[in-house]
């Protein structure tokens, strides 16, 4: 009765056989981005508060974003936040859109839009830093 493939561990045989088949990576990515967003969100709010209180709007913003730390954190914030947002939107669609094709279309469109806007935000940040 002991076939060769029984050398696989019980965990190895069970992996992927649950009702969901997949999803661990999605779950883990959502938690990691959430954790990263805690300090990033605090920095972001502090930045907005700083800009709301300081001088000529455009000059104040350009001086703030030209700071290498602020520029780096803004780019990280955009990348991580858009990634977190599209992961979260995907879960909402999977829970509430019952039609398979509409659900897939909504997920794909949201992912494309999220990464498109993330790229636009990052490029805009770089242009502000290095001059247009």
């Amino acid at each position: 009765m002991l076939a060769a493939n029984n050398l696989r561990s019980p965990l190895g045989r069970a992996r992927g056989l649950g009702s969901a088949k997949e999803g661990l990576h999605h779950w883990w990515a959502q938690r990691l981005t959430a954790l990263a967003l805690v300090p990033l969100a605090v920095w972001f709010v502090a930045g907005i508060v700083h800009l709301a209180t300081g001088g000529e709007p455009y000059e104040a913003f350009m001086a703030w974003i030209a700071n290498p730390c602020n520029a780096t954190l803004m780019i990280l914030f955009l990348g991580v936040a858009f990634h977190h947002a599209q992961l979260g939107m995907q879960v909402v669609y999977e829970d509430y859109i019952s039609c398979q094709s509409w659900r897939t279309a909504a997920i794909v469109l949201t992912k494309f839009a999220a990464y498109g806007f993330a790229a636009l935000g990052i490029v805009s940040t770089l242009i502000c830093c290095f001059g247009g």
């Binding site: 455009y58 913003f61 350009m62 974003i65 803004m74 955009l78 936040a81 858009f82 947002a85 599209q86 979260g88 939107m89 909402v92 999220a114 806007f117 993330a118 636009l120 935000g121 490029v123 805009s124 940040t125 242009i127 502000c128 247009g132």
Partner: peptide, 23 residues
């Protein structure tokens, strides 16, 4: 969940703000 969806739209506002500065 509702605030999460709202904040996703907020990210579009953030991108618009940054892009307006780049222009």
């Amino acid at each position: 969940r509702i605030t999460g969806m709202g904040l996703s739209l907020g990210l579009l506002l953030l991108t618009w703000w940054l892009t307006s500065a780049a222009y």
